[in-house]
Design a protein around this nucleic acid. Sequence first.
DNA 1: GTGAAAGCGCTAACAG
DNA 2: CTGTTAGCGCTTTCAC
Lengths: 335, 335
Amino acid sequence: MNWGNILTIKDIARLAETSVATVSRVLNGDPKVAPSTREKVLAAVKENNYVLNVNSRTMRTKKSQKILVLIPTIVNSFYSKILQGIEARAEENGYDVLIAISNLEEAREQKYLDMLRTKQVDGVISLFSLLPVDDINQLASKYPFVQACEPLIGSHTSSVTVDNRQAIYDVTSEFIKNGHKRIAMISGDYYKYSELNRERGYRDALEDHQIPYDSSLIIKTFYRYHDGSNALKQLLTLKNPPTAVICVSDSLAIGAVNEVIAQGKTPGKDIAIIGFDNTSITSNFVPSISTIAQPRFDLGINAFDLLLEKLVSLDSQIKKVILPYEIIHRQSTKR
Amino acid sequence: MNWGNILTIKDIARLAETSVATVSRVLNGDPKVAPSTREKVLAAVKENNYVLNVNSRTMRTKKSQKILVLIPTIVNSFYSKILQGIEARAEENGYDVLIAISNLEEAREQKYLDMLRTKQVDGVISLFSLLPVDDINQLASKYPFVQACEPLIGSHTSSVTVDNRQAIYDVTSEFIKNGHKRIAMISGDYYKYSELNRERGYRDALEDHQIPYDSSLIIKTFYRYHDGSNALKQLLTLKNPPTAVICVSDSLAIGAVNEVIAQGKTPGKDIAIIGFDNTSITSNFVPSISTIAQPRFDLGINAFDLLLEKLVSLDSQIKKVILPYEIIHRQSTKR
DNA sequence: GTGAAAGCGCTAACAG
DNA sequence: CTGTTAGCGCTTTCAC
């Protein structure tokens, strides 16, 4: 490998005994360059391991051929496969992918989104936003911008998600059919889009099966393991405790399962527990955790494809893509 | 928020009734600008929500004020705190942090490291490298480059790590003092630096306590949960199976613990198991998993500080920083 | 097919 | 303290 001196297009022109314009043409695949000239240029490029200065090109063309993926946090392994999907398609289409972590801080999100205005990236895929929806809508009207997994409610942007409402509707209905009458939900108070849709699915299912909604059965908390434990503890103090618990994340489900065990009960047998996301730990936990799987790689694929449409034409139609999910039953829901 | 039209320094100069040079001075905090002029400029900047074109500045100064953090994969939540440490210091020092994932593919690593040559980033912190050490050394001699956690063996770069050898030496010695005579190790065959140092610590401890080394007690495998399970299964088929098992990652330890349980034995009581990294699942697993904690945030802090020294002067001294670790005993090592 | 030259938005002499 | 200007490395007319 040669991390050597940086040559400019001018140097290559001199070495290939031609002009910078021609070198630029070769570099950009312009067909109307004589084969012999092209070869000389390519030879000089190769021999000197020349790489063009992307900043200069960006400055001139106003296109960086880079996109930014904005993720809220890296702790959740949920994002890795999505990123792989995005990167796969990006690569196919000649885009580099940069990743930034907002850390759930609005100022950081702002800063990174400003990379659009300053032409450092051509588009953004946001996996979670803290900004007001009006700001996001305005941004999306001026720059290629799509949301994945957690679009802001009311946002006018292309987005790809799983059918959160239906997933929980199905799980709740299943529980009901299996005889459960007291079904609880441990939800969050952060990722509004998914949370509210999932809660909606839960309530719709109850309603459709004539089971009265009991607000003491729905707990809004954070997403850490012990939040799941605490929530379950609280649920078990009810005079009429639940026999099934739906959690909006695997971490909550794990916490809940731990608490069930701590109380000397058996997950699945005594209380059914299901999580969301199918993170790898769920199949390796003892007992294994039932969960709802999202097609993560496909979420990434679709996110990039939606962005590409915007990259090609900002006026292209806004699309809301909904992908299927899969309910996976493991020990924590088996009698 | 205003994602509005992009003005140039020239526009601001016109609006503030001054020259581009002066605007540039204000923007760069040059003290020799009349307060009144400065105010006019700042007012124009603010009113129009001006942001300067970073590409242009980079092109001119050859400094992007950005650094790249290269991580092998995002699945391991181990990296999140390190990133936070890096970002904290970077922000203090006026650097933006970009993240790229090599996915353990050499070509991708190459591509991202080329961002140094093309002046897209001023420096790189690498958390794992696949390239030959000679290439890395050469790169590091020409650009600010530091390694964290997993420096290549024989690399001539600044780096920050935990004392991997000593950590495992201590754990092994503890086990021996507690009466264990058959101590196994489940290691990997990828992250050479940490793996080899940890294996070294293991062997040194055995030697110092006059316990013969038995090669059937050390298994090299991958890092998935089930690799830990399989390794433990194999160990338990030995005529003289181990009573304590040291794993080089928490995922392996969890897999091992699962296998112990699957065989009807009790982790801690029947077989002691310890992992490495203190990822958050370890304290939330049942049984809780003993592990060795690395000061992740500090690893990040130190990584950036080392990079900054190189950023300031490429000729600055190369430093190998070693940080302390902490052995955390939980149920999986308690009798 | 090819080259000369303008210019992207900025910074840094340099001159005043 | 301030303005003029050259030029960073590239792409892109426009001529030839």
